Simulated assay, not measured.
Amino acid sequence: MGQPDFDAELDARGLFCPEPVMMLHNRIVEISPGAVLKVVATDPSTTRDIPRFCQFLDHELVYSAEDEEGFVFFIRRGG
């Protein structure tokens, strides 16, 4: 299975905690509820921080993986 379709993207490569999650917090409000945001990061702490972000703020972590880009997350914005 390939990566899901997405509506917007956030490139947080080269940034370290807490910057990727701060950028995610700002970027997710710019997309419509139900839309999917692709996040690419290189900081290993995002594998912990982004799922928690989704859980606490009622967004859906649709897909996550590590690939040649780094850590990749697809997040469906909650209502």
Rank of each mutant, 00 (worst) to 15 (best):
M1R: 11
M1N: 12
G2K: 12
G2A: 15
G2Y: 07
G2V: 08
Q3I: 10
P4L: 15
D5M: 10
F6K: 04
D7E: 07
A8H: 13
A8G: 04
A8N: 09
L10T: 02
D11A: 00
D11S: 00
D11R: 00
A12R: 00
G14F: 06
L15C: 13
F16E: 07
F16A: 04
F16H: 10
P18S: 15
E19N: 06
P20M: 05
V21G: 12
V21M: 01
M22I: 09
M23S: 10
L24I: 06
H25D: 05
N26T: 11
N26Q: 13
N26S: 12
R27H: 11
I28D: 14
V29E: 09
E30S: 12
E30I: 01
I31N: 06
S32K: 13
S32N: 14
S32W: 14
P33F: 03
P33S: 11
A35G: 11
A35M: 05
A35Q: 09
A35W: 08
V36T: 10
V36S: 03
V36F: 13
L37Y: 07
L37I: 05
L37T: 03
K38V: 13
V39G: 02
V40A: 00
V40D: 06
V40Q: 00
A41Q: 01
T42D: 05
D43A: 02
D43C: 01
D43N: 04
P44S: 05
S45A: 10
S45Q: 04
T46G: 03
T47F: 12
R48I: 11
R48P: 01
R48Q: 08
I50A: 03
I50M: 07
I50C: 07
P51Y: 13
P51Q: 09
R52L: 09
R52N: 15
C54R: 00
C54F: 00
C54N: 06
Q55T: 12
F56E: 15
L57I: 01
D58V: 12
H59F: 08
H59Q: 14
H59I: 00
H59T: 07
H59C: 10
H59Y: 15
V62R: 13
V62E: 03
E66R: 11
E66L: 06
E66H: 09
D67G: 13
D67S: 07
E68I: 02
E68K: 06
E69Q: 09
G70F: 01
G70P: 02
G70T: 10
F71N: 13
V72R: 00
V72G: 02
I75L: 08
I75H: 08
R76G: 12
R76K: 04
G78Q: 09
G79F: 14
G79W: 14
G79D: 12
